[in-house]
Computed example of a mutant assay.
Amino acid sequence: MPYPVYIFDAYGTLFDVHAAVRRYADQIGPDGAKLSQIWRDKQLEYSWVRALSGRYKDFWQLTEEALDTAFALVPSVDRAYRDDLLTAYSRLDCYPEVPAVLRTLSEGGAKLAILSNGSPSMLEGAVEAAGIGPLLDAVLSVDQLRTYKAHPDVYDMATSQFRTFPDKVSFQSSNRWDIAGATAFGFRTVWINRAGMPDEYLDLSPAAVLADLNGLAAL
């Protein structure tokens, strides 16, 4: 492999954050996509506020609070589905190419890890549901630091885990702000631009942009 260590963001990169709402699309109705997007946006917003204010709550708590806000902002969706959606979020679907890409990298001799805002129990459930645990050398959660990305200490967890330098790490994320933080830290970064979003943070550009994880091993 071109890089000895490949680090992956979890939510939106390996695991589909909108899969939980899609499982109940027929019951939730036409505003499901709106609910799901607000849920995700508020989940991230709450993590940044908690990191900047130094008032940590784990990511599962923020996920619950974000869903409650989404329900308040989309009153057409029945709150009776709250527990069902949270249960589904604890075992999100992975994107279809993920297992094969991870297997290719692992068989090529690379070390693989997740580095995520997710709490340990959330990540354990998602990894188990996707069946990718045997392909990973580590699953790293910010919970041990009690802060969130894009704090540089979070990215340092990966270099400490594998006793390597930042420029020996390829970091993959679907979140452009996460790519900016990892680039500033010194990782080789690959933006997995699944949604076809416009670029931002032009002074902190990724080394490459892919529509999904396919082709990563060739970079």
Rank of each mutant, 00 (worst) to 15 (best):
P96T: 11
P96V: 13
P96A: 14
E97R: 05
E97D: 10
V98I: 05
V98S: 02
V98F: 01
P99E: 07
P99M: 07
P99H: 08
V101H: 01
V101N: 00
L102N: 00
L102M: 06
L102Q: 00
R103M: 03
R103P: 01
R103A: 09
R103V: 00
T104W: 08
T104F: 06
L105Q: 01
L105E: 00
L105V: 01
L105H: 00
L105K: 00
S106Y: 05
S106E: 08
S106P: 03
S106A: 14
E107C: 11
E107I: 11
E107K: 15
E107D: 15
G109D: 08
G109M: 11
A110R: 09
A110C: 09
A110L: 04
K111N: 13
K111W: 05
K111R: 14
K111F: 07
K111V: 03
L112W: 02
L112S: 01
L112T: 01
A113G: 08
I114K: 01
I114Y: 03
I114P: 02
I114C: 07
L115C: 10
L115N: 04
L115D: 08
S116L: 05
S116P: 02
S116C: 03
N117G: 10
N117H: 13
G118F: 03
G118C: 05
S119Y: 11
P120Y: 10
P120C: 10
P120L: 12
S121A: 15
S121W: 14
S121D: 15
M122V: 07
M122T: 04
L123W: 04
E124I: 03
E124N: 09
E124H: 08
E124L: 07
G125D: 10
G125V: 09
G125A: 11
G125R: 12
G125Y: 08
A126C: 15
A126I: 09
A126L: 09
V127K: 02
V127C: 06
V127R: 00
E128Y: 11
E128T: 15
A129F: 12
A129K: 15
A129Y: 08
A129V: 09
A130V: 08
A130N: 08
A130H: 06
G131V: 14
I132F: 04
I132E: 02
I132R: 06
G133N: 06
G133D: 10
G133Q: 13
G133P: 05
G133Y: 10
P134I: 09
P134Q: 13
